[in-house]
Amino acid sequence: MSVHAAILSDSSERRVQVRTNSNNAYVNRAPIPIVNNSTGITIVRGDRFTSDSMQGLIQQKQREFDFDAKLSIEESKRVNVNKSPPAYNTIYNTTYDPVYSTGNNGYGSASSMDFNSWLNSNRYRAQQIASYQRYLSAQVGAQNVPPMEQLLTTARSWDKCGYEPYQLPPQELWSNIVPTLRLYTNLKSQGILPASAEIRSVYRSPGLNDCAGGASSSKHMTAGAIDIWVPEYENNQWRLNNMQDGLCQFWQYQGGTYDFGLGLYATGAIHLDTQGFRKWGFNNASSSSSCRS
């Protein structure tokens, strides 16, 4: 059988076109990567091929072809270009976790930006926070520095107010949190606060504090206050009351030494600061405090 074979090429595939003399029909065969130096295409004419010899030509030419693009040739199919996907070093983390959806504790948020995503979104931020952590470690001991993802939280309504969930306080305010962290550590070491207590709000800029409904003289704006809660006590009113009683007793007998400001809320949230010896409850009044004395 006399045939004519040619390599046809377009933007998507390469294939062999074979025409027989007997019926003038075109038959597609496996891709034969035959390249002519001048035109890029070599026409095979006048040869007589059996099925075996055609397959042999395909295999021979396939071996001769320079696989720059790692072409995979399969008979009667399109040529597949096996390209590996590009590898990037940067990982874009856009995870949002509903970690603050804790019922009515008062410090819940529908979603919280992943701390590591926030930390790495600014090239200088991690350096600044590392400096803050070193400063606090030098003041209260590294073992008494809470996790940064707790210590940098702002307010539950950060998203609604157009702010970020975490914020580093200005450096001139760093010293204000030191006595409050010492108090927090002491309350935990005495068992008044359980080890599972978590910090949910610390520094708030004046704009965020105003939007979030904070008091106009809130100590959060001076980075001297922390709001905490205990997740395991959320649905255990007896244990919550017990903890609040312990805080009230500590405030009564030792609060003056620490200049202890204690806010207790029905939601289970607790405010601690060391910028004024006082107590209050749900409406920021002393009379509404659950402390009986």
Rank of each mutant, 00 (worst) to 15 (best):
N37V: 15
A126L: 03
E64T: 09
M221K: 14
G162P: 04
Y265W: 15
I226L: 12
G268A: 02
F115D: 02
E64V: 02
A30Y: 13
T20S: 10
A197R: 04
N36M: 10
Y88H: 05
F282Q: 14
K219G: 08
S137Q: 10
L8C: 08
N82V: 07
G255W: 02
R63L: 14
P165E: 03
R156E: 07
S51A: 15
T154I: 07
S11N: 09
N235H: 14
S2E: 12
S9L: 13
M1A: 15
Q249D: 13
P165H: 04
T257H: 15
T185I: 03
L181M: 09
C211Y: 09
P85I: 12
S189D: 08
P86D: 09
L240Y: 09
P165Q: 06
N186P: 00
L181P: 03
T50L: 05
Q17M: 11
G224K: 03
P165M: 01
K160F: 07
S9C: 12
E149S: 07
Q254F: 14
Y258K: 06
G103M: 06
R204N: 14
P147I: 00
Q237E: 14
I41C: 01
Q190A: 11
E198T: 13
P147S: 13
G46R: 12
N21F: 05
N236W: 08
V3C: 07
L187P: 07
D52W: 00
Q190D: 05
V79T: 10
Y100K: 15
E13V: 12
A195R: 12
A225L: 05
Q17P: 00
P194F: 11
P31K: 04
P194W: 11
P169R: 08
P165A: 08
T222M: 04
N24V: 02
F260I: 10
F277I: 09
A5T: 05
D52H: 04
K279G: 04
G224I: 01
E232V: 09
G191V: 07
G40D: 11
G263V: 10
D259V: 05
N241I: 06
S9E: 14
S286P: 01
T154W: 00
T222Y: 00
Q167T: 13
P33F: 13
Y107F: 11
Q249M: 06
N80L: 15
D68H: 08
R14T: 12
Y26E: 12
Y253A: 13
Y107A: 06
L173S: 04
Q62H: 03
I226S: 02
W174V: 03
S101G: 02
E74Q: 12
L152M: 00
G246D: 09
N104Q: 07
I199G: 01
Y26N: 08
T180Y: 05
G268P: 01
L119K: 01
S2P: 09
Q62V: 05
G108H: 06
